[in-house]
Simulated scan of single mutants.
Amino acid sequence: MIEKREALTSELHTVLDFIRWGASRFNEADLWFGHGTDNAWDDAVLLVMHGLHLPVGSKPEVLSANLTMDERKSVLCLLERRFKDRVPTPYITNEAWFCEMPFYVDERVLVPRSPIAELIQTGFGPWAKGELTSVLDLCCGSGCIGIATAAQYPDVEVTLSDISADALEVARVNVDMHHLADHMMLVESDLFNNLKGASFDLILCNPPYVDADDLAQMPPEYQAEPSLALGSGDDGLDFTRRLLREAPNHLHAEGVLICEVGNSWVNLEQAFPNVPFTWIEFEHGGHGVFAITREELLAYKAFFA
């Protein structure tokens, strides 16, 4: 292996050489993409530019620049980690983007990718009735949903909550990075257990929702993410059932719950065929996100018992 790496560092010279070589190895290894990019080339660009401490949007002239020997070795290590260990690129760079904002991420949290980003950027559409004053980001992970909401609506009080103390440590890093500590509260809680008495205009939730079959078949890149944030029982709805039962107690009179269940939306419809979930359509892609009002949750509470 040492000999092979030495050969590569003598054969590859420019930024473009390393991007091309990395993309070729990624395709050869049949990697899975879905953590910020959808193809081998873009993944290779991110890793090479990260290793060189250069922005992705650097001038095209940089592609022909020669790397020093130390830079070649450093970039090769990053590329090899991606295709040999199949680590998602954001865990290697410790950076992901959500709502056009950068977030620190590592293996303690999911890589941000929720279509709820589009709702934040468009003002939550008809589901934000009146002026928002309080929002809960439940199962917050990195805190991206709540932090993006706080950045977009500076007068709104935002609470970040997660069962994982490790995830909340990552969320705290992001709160501080975006200078929002004065706007936000972080609470370690299993659903609403440590939020007793608290209520909100809007609850945003990207909970664990992957069913057992999908979880078992996930590619290694997704298995690198925390299982606590992914799986939720045989049909993917263990957490969501609890949420539907308890959410009305933590919503204001005209409050709304917006929740992502991904591919488990079919299971949710089958489990509660009489409940009027509103499935949100996204202009920029994404599915499996529903909205339901407090009034509707109360009207159909017998189905959630």
Rank of each mutant, 00 (worst) to 15 (best):
C144G: 05
P154A: 00
L16K: 12
E3W: 12
R113M: 14
D234N: 15
P226H: 08
N267C: 10
L76Q: 05
S232H: 13
S74W: 08
D211H: 15
T37E: 03
F98E: 04
G141A: 10
T133L: 01
Y104R: 08
L160C: 03
S164N: 06
I145Y: 05
E269V: 11
T293Y: 06
M184F: 00
H178V: 00
T149V: 05
V266L: 14
A216K: 11
H179D: 07
D235P: 12
C259H: 13
L268V: 11
V170K: 03
G36Y: 00
N267M: 14
R72H: 05
N249P: 04
T278P: 03
C144E: 08
T293M: 02
M49Y: 04
H284P: 07
S164Q: 11
N39S: 07
Q217E: 11
E6K: 13
R245H: 07
A150H: 00
N94W: 08
N206R: 11
P115T: 06
L243G: 09
L244C: 11
L67H: 00
A302R: 07
N249L: 07
A40Q: 04
L257H: 13
H287T: 11
M49A: 02
I203M: 09
N206H: 14
D106G: 10
M185E: 09
L180K: 09
V256K: 07
E188L: 02
C140D: 14
A229Y: 08
V56P: 00
L191I: 15
K129P: 01
L215N: 13
K59Q: 09
D42A: 08
I163T: 14
C205R: 12
V170P: 04
P102D: 01
V158C: 01
I147E: 00
G36D: 04
P226F: 14
E221C: 11
P115R: 03
R25L: 10
E283G: 12
E296T: 13
A299M: 02
A253E: 15
T133N: 06
A7D: 11
K196G: 10
V111A: 04
L67K: 00
L195Q: 09
L202H: 08
L228Y: 12
D166S: 15
V75E: 01
W41G: 01
F98H: 03
W97S: 09
E269T: 13
I145W: 04
L52A: 02
A302V: 10
E225T: 05
T68C: 01
S189M: 01
P208M: 10
V187D: 02
L202A: 03
A247M: 05
I163F: 15
V15H: 00
L195K: 04
N39I: 03
D176K: 10
D190W: 01
A291P: 09
G286R: 07
E28C: 05
Q223K: 15
I19V: 15
G262C: 11
V275W: 01
L78F: 06
P126I: 01
S189L: 01
I147V: 04
L237H: 06
T9N: 10
R20K: 13
